[in-house]
Design a protein around this nucleic acid. Sequence first.
RNA 1: GGUUCAGUAGUUCAGUUGGUUAGAACGCCGCCCUGUCACGGCGGAGGUCAGGGGUUCGAGUCCCCUCUGAAUCG
Length: 378
Amino acid sequence: MSSFTLYKQEGTARRGMLSTVHGDIQTPVFMNVGTSAAIKGGVSTYDLKQIKCQVELSNTYHLHVRPGEDIIYRQGGIHKFFNWDKPVLTDSGGFQVFSLAHLRNIKEDGVTFQSHMDGAKVYMSPEVSMQIQSRLASTIAMAFDECPSSVAEHGYIAKSIERTTRWLYRCKDEMDRLNGLEETINRSQMLFGINQGGVYPDLRKHHMEQIRQLDLDGFAIGGLAVGETADEMYHIIEEVEPFMPKDKPRYLMGVGTPINILESVDRGVDFFDCVMPSRNARHGNLFTSEGLLNLNNNKFLEDSRPIDEKCDCPVCRTYTRAYIRHLFKARELLGMRLCVLHNLYFYNNMMEEIRAAIDGGYWKQYKEEKVEAFSQRV
RNA sequence: GGUUCAGUAGUUCAGUUGGUUAGAACGCCGCCCUGUCACGGCGGAGGUCAGGGGUUCGAGUCCCCUCUGAAUCG
């Protein structure tokens, strides 16, 4: 029995809800990235509730390196540690093996690579990743996969996805075992599998057909937005979507721009996460209803309007562009914080609008208007 | 008033025994960022080398004068 309920569809766009032990998640949803159990830029869990955040995402690898999953376990799990009672998804560390390990050694059993913190050797395997995520006690754990470059050769990826499938079986077995242990904090921890296959439709479909054999709580599309064009990414989603279970949530990992999200919702994706709103905010780049705004631009020096005149976020109701630009130029931490709050609100609010549009039956029209608006610059 | 030191980009300074188109850092301007190592990355604009005169094939660099600032002595 699935904990995912599909309320409505318009074309391939879906409106649903995932029930978890930490509450319901209305989809489509954007997950706010807090890698080390913290949203970068000084955003607290009090703030997260103000900006309509439903799900927070943290990272197995980072929390393993610091402070270590045993400390979080003894603190009662990530929810108590982080003071966040809503759902948390933990990424498995597979992507970090790809993105930040210079010296890595991928073998059948697992991966050895160097920690970005101190250069110490770190070993991760499907079992180790599940054990860490179980100790963290997140709501949703991600499978430990290999994330090759999306433009890697067909031959390499063909072999890689076979191993990722074998790893997924190991993840599933280990997760079942851990959920059966008395000492496990969250014995209802969910597991999402991850589809790979680069930009090759045949590999994507083949891999999806393999991994859907497992009784998982959701399925992710990984390995996109890492070098290929947006059109290639959309094409892959279109190719693989018919092979994804209808009654399980779909998660497009690491994506993306507001337009990427609109286009992907339209192609049947339910879950998203991306560092873009927070990272761009820290660099002064803001998302608005009128398009992209670079607060560093000189033209905002004496601009007494809010970041986005149509935005109801706590920042836009209170502060001017001129002031936040000043904070930014003066490198006051508050500037970064306000920009991150705005961008995350923008994303979470957009998802709320998307859900309302599908509910209301005006999704296509909404999507087209927004894609047009978000292509502009302020 | 005397002596010494200094004056080079918006700022702080490099600049070889005189030798192509005077550099850096910060600041400024713009672009980038997609399962976060990153208040980061990339690019750009900006100089009558205080002013004038001289020596020299050639002066930011050597000489003289003027101006400005600092220190110090009376």
